[in-house]
């Protein structure tokens, strides 16, 4: 009944002009990617290797298991591809800058595996804040990382040693 009453209201309204800039109307700002890096700029923060959330391994054995820097690069790339296309965690990765993620996750892996990189990303708590991650999501990306490592023939014990560095980060990542 009320619906019928409102119908004339709906039908008798003024059409908006043809050339309205709706983004401007609603205050949507277009984000421009950095022309050099291709990344979307982020709020400034203090850069430190401590942001990586884990201490690096001693020695070069772990880096060797991962195929050195090149192997780590391929694993980080594959992990990025798998995770950004994974329907299980699509909601979490949807709003993410894939270019920046690909770079910082490589830096983090490379730093922790002691393959001679510095980590320039944000710390684990602030980089995962507000994503609403659950343990189920964490399991999904662990599986993606395991697949990426397996495809590079990283021995299973070495995979687990690396995961042991990452697992305690759940305290900063899992929010619900």
């Amino acid at each position: 009944m009320l619906f019928t009453a409102t119908l004339p209201l709906l039908l008798m309204q003024q059409a908006p002009a043809e050339n309205v800039d709706w983004d401007a109307e609603f205050g949507v700002e277009e984000v421009a990617r950095d022309p050099e890096t291709g990344e979307i700029p982020v709020e400034p923060y203090e850069q430190s290797n401590a942001n990586a959330g884990a201490t690096p391994f001693d020695g070069e054995a772990m880096a060797a298991h991962f195929g050195g820097r090149e192997g780590i690069r391929r694993i980080a790339d594959r992990f990025t591809d798998l995770s950004f296309s994974d329907p299980r965690v699509a909601g979490i990765f949807a709003g993410h800058d894939e270019v920046r993620f690909r770079r910082t996750i490589f830096e983090q892996f490379c730093y922790i595996l002691n393959a001679g990189c510095d980590y320039t990303g944000r710390d684990m708590r602030s980089s995962h804040s507000g994503l609403g991650s659950r343990k189920a999501d964490l399991n999904a990306i662990v599986e993606n990382l395991q697949q990426a490592m397996r495809e590079e023939d990283v021995p299973f014990a070495a995979q687990n040693r690396f995961l042991a560095k990452l697992a305690p980060m759940s305290r900063d990542i899992v929010e619900r």
Partner: peptide
Amino acid sequence: PAPAVATLALALIP
């Protein structure tokens, strides 16, 4: 309709 009217309509719909 324009968003404002849509909101109004939603509010009036049972």
